[in-house]
Design a binder for these strands. Structure first.
Lengths: 107, 107
DNA sequence: CTTTCATATGTAATATATTTCATATGAATA
DNA sequence: TATTCATATGAAATATATTACATATGAAAG
């Protein structure tokens, strides 16, 4: 049978998703925002980063429509905008766990 | 309830996996190697890249134990070494497809 | 209406990833 | 055993991502 290639649009979109998830700050952010909406300063505290770094990463997540923000008073609260991404995250965590367990026996 | 953070080992491992999949060449390679083992020159042709670029990417996939190689005559055949990664790839493709379909209606 | 607080953004500095080019290696063949 | 073929690898060139610093913005409080 002939080889099936992933077509370029699907590959592009996959690349975007993977790029977003390949940074641990963003990965953790999405994991946190799954649990509840959080303001920038809350995220800054929990993640122990500079405010600017947090805002920049959130800007990327917004650009890719993975999160959205709503203003409440002075704060800007972020929330997960695409729950479907959680399936990818969870599958990744499962895989990561599987790899880590594997390392304890083999090699 | 308190916030659940992804612990650092799991986060590190997830980062590695996502980094590997965030490059479209590697993503496509893994997709191809799922279907059958292929030599470097076959991959070079199918992916339409320089041989050196292909070898470098394969070296990374080897390093992360996602593929392994076996020599046959002059050629070096690569095969998928971690079928579990396919779950992540497939989940990603599903998500990418979902996003692309979404774009056709909304926005 | 000016000061403060929370956040965003531009730009430069730095780090990381990818590609390219040149060359090395190692098995097969002449 | 010299040559060729397939692949790997080192190092430089280039591209991309991340962080840090300075400053802008906009809502709320005084």
């Amino acid at each position: 049978m002939a080889l099936k290639m992933i077509d370029s649009k699907l590959l592009d979109e996959s690349e975007k998703i993977m790029k977003m998830l390949s940074n641990p700050v963003r990965f953790q952010m999405l994991n946190l925002l799954e649990q509840k909406k959080m303001s920038v300063s809350e995220l800054t505290n929990v993640l122990d980063l500079e405010q600017s770094a947090v805002s920049h990463q959130l800007a990327l997540l917004r650009e890719y429509q993975l999160v959205s923000a709503t203003r409440e008073g002075k704060s800007n609260y972020y929330q997960l905008d695409d729950p479907h991404i959680l399936d990818v995250i969870n599958e990744t965590l499962e895989h990561a766990d599987h790899v880590l367990r594997g390392k304890k026996h083999g090699e």
